[in-house]
Every structure is written in C-alpha cells, then in structure tokens.
Amino acid sequence: MSSASAQVSTVRWLKRAAFAVLVVAVIYGLGALLESTAIEYVQRIVLLAGINVILAVGLNLINGTTGQFSIGHAGFMAVGAYAAAFFGTKLHPWLIGLLGAGACADALTFNLALCIGALFAGAAGLVVGIPTLRLRGDYLAVVTLGFGEIIRIVFNNARALGAATGYSGDDPAGLPAYTNFFWVYLWATLLVTGLAHLTFSQTGRSLTAIREDEIAAEAMAIPTTRLKVLAFTVSAATAGVAGGLFAHMQSGIRPEDFKFEKSIDMVVMIIVGGLGSISGAVVGGIFVAVTLEVMRDLSQYRLVLYALLLIIIMLVRPQGLFGARELPSVLRRLRGPRTKESS
C-alpha cells in the first residue's frame, strides 16, 4: 500500500519535472525565435511586457486579493533594482574567480542578484508593513505613497549609488545587459505559478476573507495582521525581482525611473485587468506595456490619451477585463450559455 502510493507520488513528481523541463524549453525556444526575427525595439517591448506582468501579479496579491491598497510599489521596485544592480556588480568578479568567465558565471550572478533584490525589497515591505497593516483601513495607501517618494529621494541623494545621475555599476560601459527573453519569462512563469498557488491555498482564501470583511475574518481566528504583512512582503519582493530585471535591461538605473507615475502604471495594470484576478493582472501588464509604446509618438499627449482610455474602461467595464475571475472560469462562462441554447 505504502510502496504503491510512493510509486504514484514518484510518477507524479516525474510528470511534474518533465512538464517543468518542457516549459523551460518552450520559453528558451520562443526567446531564440524572438531574438532571431524581431527588431530590437519590439524585443524591448516584449521584455517590458514580461516585467510588467511580474509587477502586476505581485501588486494584485496585496491590492486585489487582500484588498489593502498600495500605491507606492515603484519604491519597492527601486529597492530591488538598486540592490540587484549593486550586488550583481560586486558579486560578478568573485563568481568569475570561482567559475571562470563565461555564461555560467553571468547567469549565476544575475539570478543571485535578482534574489538579493527580492530580499531587500521584501525587507523594505516588512518594515513598511508591520506598523501600517496593524491598522484597519486605508492607511497603507497613504504610507506607501510616502514611502515611494522617500525611497526615490534617498536614492537621489545616495552618493555611493550615483545620486541623481543614477547607478551603472563599476564598469564604465554600464550595467551588463543580462536581461533577455528567457530570464524575464522564466521568472514571470515562476512567479505567476507561485502566486497562483498561494492565492488558491487556504492562506489565499484567508487573504480574500480579509478583503471581504476584516472583522468577520478576525472572528474566524484568522491572524489578519500577520497575513496582511505576509501578502505585502511577498508583493514587495515580487516588485523587487521586476526591479532587478528592469535594471539589467539598460546600462544604468536612475531614481527618476521609479517616479510616482510608475506606481500609478502598476495600479492601472491591475485595474484594467480586474482587481483580484491573476489572469487579469497578466493581461493588464501586457496591455500597459503595449499601449504606452504605441502612444509614445504622441509625446506629451500620450498621458492625456491614456487617461481618456482609462475613463472609457471605467465607464464601460468598471470591474476590469476579468472582474475578480480567472481565465478558466471566464472561458466556462463564455461557453456555458451556448450549450444551453443548443439543448
């Protein structure tokens, strides 16, 4: 009996491992295809879309699922970006000494740097979250708004990190361009899967309970403060990964890359997609990346059009594209009425 069940679980793990390998291969293949066919401009938009997806899915955990509004996530993205860039720069020579120069040392440096970025952003989330999330209500919005600005001003004045001119590592050529399709979409896949698992677990349901009725959630013995802080920290760490990916897309990062508008962009992504929906966050992230680029030629009118577009969405579909639903349930609903008609 036990050996049989052990066998079943081994088979299940083998299947999962095979699936994971397949996913990695597909991402790698798509990346190779994109890099050989598309022009650099298109490639850049695709990368930005992937980073946006990570940002949106992370922000959705706290703003959508848990219902605690953060409007300063650019701050956590900045912390992740600077931490990843700084530690990546410092780690690289040491890892080259260990492994020899080459793709292996680069990949290891990059991923370690991303993890460090996530760690720092998560720690910042913890520091901001613990005092703020003890309270019920909209305090998080106020505090994160302030935090986003404070962090930007701190980086603006941090001499060791290049102050207002930004940080570009020790190499005069700037930060290494590690970020490519493969890494962005591998991390995006990992984070979307991980956050989906979290959202549909008992913990995730408890987070939704906090959003729906915090008093009732507390009366169910759900440790609301602890879970809110957990969700916020995970969300901040996710923004940190996105920051690290963003940093290694260009030769340097500047404090003004993480202005308040960036935080608003993120909020727009999840509102367009539908608060509380992971599928919605993915679509919203891509939507914002594409529309911002498409409208770039309009220069200063871009933001006006952007605002108009949002107003239209709010009027026509205030719950966002997906509402709080996920892709499978939306497809089921679309299919549902048709089968009834045919019967």
Binding site: A209, A217, M220
Partner: peptide
C-alpha cells in the same frame, strides 16, 4: 458579514480555520 465573493463551502471552511 459573509465573504461574499466566495462559495458557501469556502465560507464554511474558513469557519474552521483553526
């Protein structure tokens, strides 16, 4: 104060959170 976006079963399951 039911958790309105969740199913009846999910509401009940949250009742036995501990």
């Amino acid at each position: 104060a039911v958790f309105s976006s969740m199913s009846v079963r999910e509401n009940l399951e949250l009742g036995s959170f501990l």
